[in-house]
Structure formats: C-alpha cells, structure tokens
Design a protein around this nucleic acid. Sequence first.
DNA 1: GCGTAATATCTCGCGGGCCGATATATATCA
DNA 2: TGATATATATCGGCCCGCGAGATATTACGC
Lengths: 122, 122
Amino acid sequence: MIIRGKTEPVFLILTALADEPRHGYGIIQEVRRVTDGRVDLRVGTLYGALDRLAAEGLVEKHGDAVESGRLRRYFRLTETGAQALAAEASRMAADAAVAMERLKKFTAPARSAGLDIAGGLA
Amino acid sequence: MIIRGKTEPVFLILTALADEPRHGYGIIQEVRRVTDGRVDLRVGTLYGALDRLAAEGLVEKHGDAVESGRLRRYFRLTETGAQALAAEASRMAADAAVAMERLKKFTAPARSAGLDIAGGLA
DNA sequence: GCGTAATATCTCGCGGGCCGATATATATCA
DNA sequence: TGATATATATCGGCCCGCGAGATATTACGC
C-alpha cells in the first residue's frame, strides 16, 4: 500500500519482526505463517528490503549467530520501525474500512439491454 | 497490501469508483477527499492504472460526456472489480489487525554499547 | 482584455522495487 | 547418492508510480 507508505512485502517484514528478532529465513517462514500461506516472500525481495529498512532506521542488526552449523543473521525492529508499522497498520485499516463502507452503495452495472440490476447486494 | 494484490493508488481508484461512476479528474478529487488530503493521485498514475484495470475487467467505460464545455470520460466499477476490492479490503484489514496485535509484544531494543540485550524480551 | 488558476484529458521517460534465476554451503533423510 | 530443507547473497528484467510536459476550456481577479 502505500503512499508513500510501505509496499506489502515491506509491511509484512516489519510485522514478522514485531514480536521478536528473527533471521532472514525465519522472516520468510513467519510471513508465510501469518498470511496463512498466501504470501511467499522471495529472498531477492527480502534482502533488498532489509537493506533499505536498515538504512531508514526501521530495523537494525541484532547480531550473527551460528546455529546447527548454519549462519544466521538476526534483525530486529527499532522503536522507529514499530511506530512506522503502527502508523501504516492504522492507515491500512482506515482505508479498508472506507472501501468496505463505500461498497455498500455499489450496484452492479446494468447490462447492455434494459434488463436490470436489482440484485446488486441487497 | 499488495501481493500481488493491488498497490495503494489502484486500491484507492477502485474505492473512489465504488459508490458511483466518475471521470478521471473526479477520481483524483475523490481520492484526495476520502484520504483527508493524504493522497494526491498523479495523472500519470491514474490513466496508466485505469488502462490496466480496464484490461483486467475491474473497471469499464461508462461513456463520454461533455459538461460545461469540458470532455469527461466516465468509468465505473464492474461486478468483478467490486469483488476484487472487497477481497483486497478484507485482506488489508486482516493484515493490519495482525500487525497491531503483534506490536503489543514489541519491546524497545536495549540500547547501545556492550551492554548486552538481556532485556530484549523476557 | 489579460494572466492565473482550476478543470480535464493524455503521453513519455526515469527510477524504484518485486521477482525469477542463479550461486554457495551445510544438515537431514531416503 | 540424491533430494529436500535451511540459510545467505547477487543480478537483471519488468512492472508501475511519478514527474514533467502538452493541450484545451472555463472562471475569476485585476
């Protein structure tokens, strides 16, 4: 979403980091989990986004670790990042509410011939 | 939002068309209105997006008109477009709710030098 | 009458960001 | 031995939003 708010991948990365620090691959799994499998974050998207978010000060490195013989690079949300995420979330909720409210007034376009609508939503 | 859901401009265009057909400039004004001036839709964004949305069948032409000596090209939301907007809105509301819920667990990162974490969460 | 702003449409090019592809390396299980 | 999962990283293509510019009419102030 997002003007010049965040894109959905970025929003979800921040969301994944909201409760605790995670490493890259862990973020991917968490995003998949919180979206019920809907969003499969790409690594190319992830690392590019993390670099930008770190440059903006919304996330920061939380140290590297070697666990089970594998390198893990942890990131965590900063205070600024948490505020940005909260602002973005409330804006999205507001936009979504406006859309749903307005959709109540939607009536399906009348098809070519005079045959009509009636059924739109009511 | 938005994977491969709609971007915010696109989402707001659909929202602006939800209650009744509008012409391009009217969409711009309506978007500004529903976002309390936050989003100023650019014409380059608008016409490109309308072309794509029409190609996808989410909006359709509602006829041209000359009013007050000015040409107006009207667009309206299709049934498919209304469904897409509803789906997108509910997805956004869900994502926003998840983010806000998780933010409750957020604790500010322990600051600065050497002093290690410890307080992070526990 | 004249300039400016608002209304209204459209096009083009730049740049940013997502994604697919690719590379590398270790651990686990069949 | 090979496939799959874990884990990191880079690069090029492509889509899309935006800035800038073009065109035209109406409305208002001076």
